[in-house]
Nucleic acid binder design. Structure first.
Lengths: 334, 334
DNA sequence: TAATTTTATGCACACGTTAACAAAGTGAAT
DNA sequence: ATTCACTTTGTTAACGTGTGCATAAAATTA
């Protein structure tokens, strides 16, 4: 059915090698022949067989975009932004392959022949095995979102620690002293980074954080809701809460409303990420913006670069975060 | 580097043919040999080369998940839910390939050899060319989300018309008579269906819809916000608004708040989709639930079925929608 | 034991492409 | 005209796997 280079060869009265060369624009072929062959290829609607190509060239034309998990702890907006960013950069000559690491029982199917390169949106230390495997297989890899100091790969991360430091600092500047934090999934690196930045801001100003003011969440809305309920049940509830992501901040806001509290008059709330909806919550959410889509796009550029240049580079790229002040925070007043 | 069946053949002192058969569990091979070969394959950590396999078997082990567009008009939650649903069903022996149709200038690279099957989350009539192309290439395809009557494919759609009919009916039952609709992207089929259902509800009760009460949006939050501004600027603004999706409903709510209106006391708002956040808006959004993830999962099951049975079936599956009553709607009171 | 059937294995080619090497053609310099 | 260099094309094998057909080995039957 579908035409092959051999079919074209017959029509053009040349060998299939010549056709192959012509189509790959090899300088070995005379211009006239080249044009004739191109012409015929057009006419028979020739489409190269990528499996054959991949087999002989030992390349897959596939880029793997992996997440720690697709179903757990990856919010929709985060997930979508990542794919959008990568998709923007990767041309259609590449297959874009999307999976969660936790779908794999073992990594034997992850190897060089199947992936020209891997982009990993990494959220958990549990990914280390996967990364190790990829490096072992000598698959070019860029890891996004989670800092891996010293590893021989391209690493692009947002400066979460600094971001949450600014968030904490901001709340203090607003006169708050009773400030709580709702954390993300325990095993996620981002959870740790965001706590660290927050704690640093507190300590610098000599504020202590009672242990009841540090409460765990799961990065989803429901868990933010529950965490806030917990905080509000305390004998001295906080006057401001820093949430480790926007999803939880939205849940937290709801819990506050349910108790009849007003945000920001009675309670200030800060989120993290600046997802699409943050601008449209009521009140609009003050949050730390983290440019996921850009990070992903840069990751994609980097992986293409590595594939082109056929050498793995080591690089650490920090992307800055930015505090977006909206309406969910206010100056503390007794 | 990586072991091939020939390597195993040498180690086992058999031909590569025997190895191939053994690994494919052919009944031609003696149990003992089979076990021996399996054993060795394990030891050398054999991984089949899918390019070679695909080349000879004429199958790609790839399932394409296509969207009308990845960047325009596809909301994050919708996008993520779709991928989650498909991902849940498709085993890791398949490549899951994700792309937007609008990334393609022409469809020459979409052919049988490259895709065992295609799942299309279709939103626009502009997709018809693509569908036609797939059918022509005899690629098994299931189309989700958009009704294609009579086409020779599996078609899974939510009953949007009925859903919005119920939404309209509900608002009328609440005593509203001045009801507006904020529509989605013009070229999207869902836009039409949702309008149709809504209009039907109105007409059945003898309510007319003034043309100013039908206002266009783009399915994103910002456009819902603007559309609502438009409505509120009218000399007689509506007392209830049906929004063609939740994203726009959230934008609309914000516009209302900005004008000092209270939802639902001054204005009732209904959305469509029941995205994650709908439960957490303030007030929580009354909306029509559409089970995207389930639709996608069923689509994935269907495509696998078609691939297994090697015959394209024609089937139309309707998935019911459900009105979820929350707090953004109230009985009309003058 | 010989003939026949059944079972297990191997040979050789195919899938569609690229590439090293060989060969033929072209033109210029001697 | 002969040699040489260069340009263009063809021959052949290779990538890793599956399969029709031939064949060898084993089991069954006569």
């Amino acid at each position: 059915m579908a035409a092959t280079i051999k079919d074209i060869a017959k029509l053009a009265n040349v060998s299939h090698t010549t056709v192959s060369r012509a189509l790959n624009n090899s300088p070995l072929i005379k211009e006239v022949t080249k044009r004739k062959i191109m012409q015929i290829a057009q006419e028979v609607n020739y489409i190269p067989n990528y499996n054959a190509k991949s087999l002989v060239l030992q390349r897959s034309h596939t880029i793997g975009l992996f997440f720690t998990s697709i179903s757990n702890g990856t919010s929709s907006s985060f997930f979508a932004a990542t794919i959008r960013g990568v998709n923007r950069v990767i041309g259609i000559e590449y297959n874009l392959f999307v999976r969660g690491i936790d779908d794999y029982l073992d990594y034997s199917s992850i190897h060089r022949k199947r992936f020209d390169g891997i982009i990993l949106m990494s959220q958990s230390e549990a990914d280390n095995d996967f990364i190790h495997h990829a490096l072992e297989q000598e698959i070019p890899i860029v890891v996004l979102n989670r800092l891996l100091p010293g590893a021989n790969l391209v690493n692009i991360v947002s400066n979460d620690k600094e971001g949450s430091y600014h968030a904490g600092q901001f709340l203090i500047e607003q006169g708050h002293t009773q400030i709580a934090i709702i954390e993300g999934i325990k095993s996620f690196k981002s959870t740790e980074q965001r706590r660290l930045g927050f704690v640093q801001a507190m300590e610098e100003k000599g504020l202590s954080i009672p242990s009841q003011y540090i409460v765990g969440g799961e990065y989803d809305t429901e868990s933010g809701y529950q965490a806030m309920q917990q905080l509000l049940a305390l004998s001295t509830p906080p006057t401001a809460v820093f949430c480790s992501n926007d999803d939880m901040a939205i849940g937290a806001m709801n819990a506050a409303f349910e108790q009849g509290l007003k945000v920001p008059q009675d309670l200030s709330i800060v989120g993290f990420d600046d997802i699409n909806f943050s601008m449209y919550t009521n009140p609009a959410l003050t949050t730390v913006k983290r440019p996921i889509e850009d990070i992903s796009a840069r990751g994609a550029e980097k992986i293409l670069e590595q594939i082109r240049e056929k050498e793995t580079q080591q690089e650490l790229i920090f992307v800055e975060t930015e505090l977006i002040q909206r309406k969910s925070t206010a100056v503390y007043s007794e």
